[in-house]
Design a protein around this nucleic acid. Sequence first.
DNA 1: AGAGTCTTCCAAAGCGCTTTGGCTTTTTTG
DNA 2: CAAAAAAGCCAAAGCGCTTTGGAAGACTCT
Lengths: 340, 340
Amino acid sequence: MNLKQLAHMLALSQTTVSRALNGYPEVNEETRRRVMDAAKRHGYRPNPSARRLATGKTGMIGYVLPTGASVDIDPHFVEFLSGLGDYARSHELDLVLSPADADDQETTYRRIVANRQVDAVYISSPRPADRRVALVNTLGIPFIVHGRSEGFDFDYPFTDIDNEGAFHEAARLLIQLGHRRLALINGDDRETFAIHRERGVRRALAASGLELGERHVCSVAMTEENGYRATRRLLEEGDAPTAIACSSLIMALGVVRAVRDLGLTIPGDVSLIAHDDVFPWLRPENFSVPLSTTRSSIRLAGARIAERLAARISGLEEGARGEVWPVDLVVRGSVAGAPA
Amino acid sequence: MNLKQLAHMLALSQTTVSRALNGYPEVNEETRRRVMDAAKRHGYRPNPSARRLATGKTGMIGYVLPTGASVDIDPHFVEFLSGLGDYARSHELDLVLSPADADDQETTYRRIVANRQVDAVYISSPRPADRRVALVNTLGIPFIVHGRSEGFDFDYPFTDIDNEGAFHEAARLLIQLGHRRLALINGDDRETFAIHRERGVRRALAASGLELGERHVCSVAMTEENGYRATRRLLEEGDAPTAIACSSLIMALGVVRAVRDLGLTIPGDVSLIAHDDVFPWLRPENFSVPLSTTRSSIRLAGARIAERLAARISGLEEGARGEVWPVDLVVRGSVAGAPA
DNA sequence: AGAGTCTTCCAAAGCGCTTTGGCTTTTTTG
DNA sequence: CAAAAAAGCCAAAGCGCTTTGGAAGACTCT
């Protein structure tokens, strides 16, 4: 059942039927009702390919997925996706993932924009002066950044969490508990979130006249193994920290294992605070010692990003407003006063 | 730059240019070269929306993503996606995720087929007599199932791993080591993979005249917490098992924690074998006691599914061939002879 | 040399929708 | 009550591609 047939059986023109269906004003309400009714009765659904060719609208949002043999997609992604999908579903939006060579995403961005394959895109894991953000900004497609970039001469719309504030609070708590030597096991420090977290820790330390030792900060891919290695290194060298802030629950698994392997305890010898993105399958309260965390649901962020993208597509949202969500600091058993 | 313009500047008809570009035989090689050349020089890329309307081909593969507040997307998904994306990239395929109410995916399948939104779909986590498989089969869109369904009167194409064989081997090893009371901590037993794994364990036990006790098998969502709970329950009751087979590395984290909490050791008191889908961020060799596993890279499966989908789209693959991959049994420190 | 075959190209008809520009008919207005 | 404005509808022109059904010219064959 296409428009032509529907129009024919209603003895109306395609124009009128189309307008009736799309809510244009220049059609009699009585007629509109008839059309709507017939459309529903015959299960008429406009062909998206045709509509797309005519309008350029696709009803899809895009994400360029970096791939490659050595590229691992972050497990956070799936949780983000849950939120995004949840919102998108209720608004009949689909998500198209365009895989791209991790080292050349630009080509793919250009393609999906030139081809009008999606109505909007989002960008995640941005770095300072991220080229994707600049590119997408000039290409003129609606977008939202999940996280923040920095150092542009233009503003852009983003949704981020207060990484700096979160790690500032975490560090401040540890300092108040008497810790003097903190360490930070961070994610890839080319990404803004990691930079912000480090900044937060440093700021808290500085406020008490302390510093984050050169060797007390490390930046690695967020795997269990890396958490383990970093911790071993930290604790086996001289000047070992008495407290660790850690950027991910998965790395924290490795931290806990390393501490145990060294015959030390949490929080007796080492206090630990990790960032929790809220995975359903790994909860900080269930660690052998319940883990203190800075908590922010990445799933909620996904839903929010979808919401903003939808708003931008339909013109409800404009401008370059950035929003920064506060982060909870949840204290559990893994922190204690510094050992004497 | 569109076809019309290109044709005009070459003083050829759109027909000829189109055919030259798409490799039809009825065009002079010399002409084809000219066309190809000009196309490249001017960066001509056919508009996919238009092509799509004309041919019905989209260059996209689809996946219906079950969503809902209480629905958690499996973290395996992201790893599968890595593989899929990796292959898809090299073939200029995009993946469209259509979020659907987890309880009504049928509507979404019908929509994406009726609308011709994708050229093919894949289905994951199938159950016996899975309605999605039956539906997609009758709808006539090319598809591949990742995993297996059962109990149809038709065949369908799938790629699965030998879950039964893997768990059969695992159980057999444990039995050979003298274990008599095995337990299985399984995933959702409405899904085929879980059924197959249980079958594998039972078959191995039966071969030695043993059985899988009623209370020695549990089927839960694969979270750390559920692994923990299941293990506590198993080990605290009478008739506690001396060996555990576990369907996921994430649950195994909980198993290990529970064993430790009870003051027991692996493999001294309990042997443990878990299934490993090969996550880059959590490796069995890095468990406090290196974990024996049945191993199969879900990432490779993703790539394979993409490959088969591409083959089906282009007509290179037909029929309903199912392929079953063997699974490695990797023995590490977490298994030992049964305690006396 | 005329008939039949290829080879190579083209005009035009879709694909199914939206949107422009205009044409009636009805309603409002001075 | 005539003129102007508004309401309601339509034909047709896109959107940019593929594909059908020729047709012209070159080649082969008897």
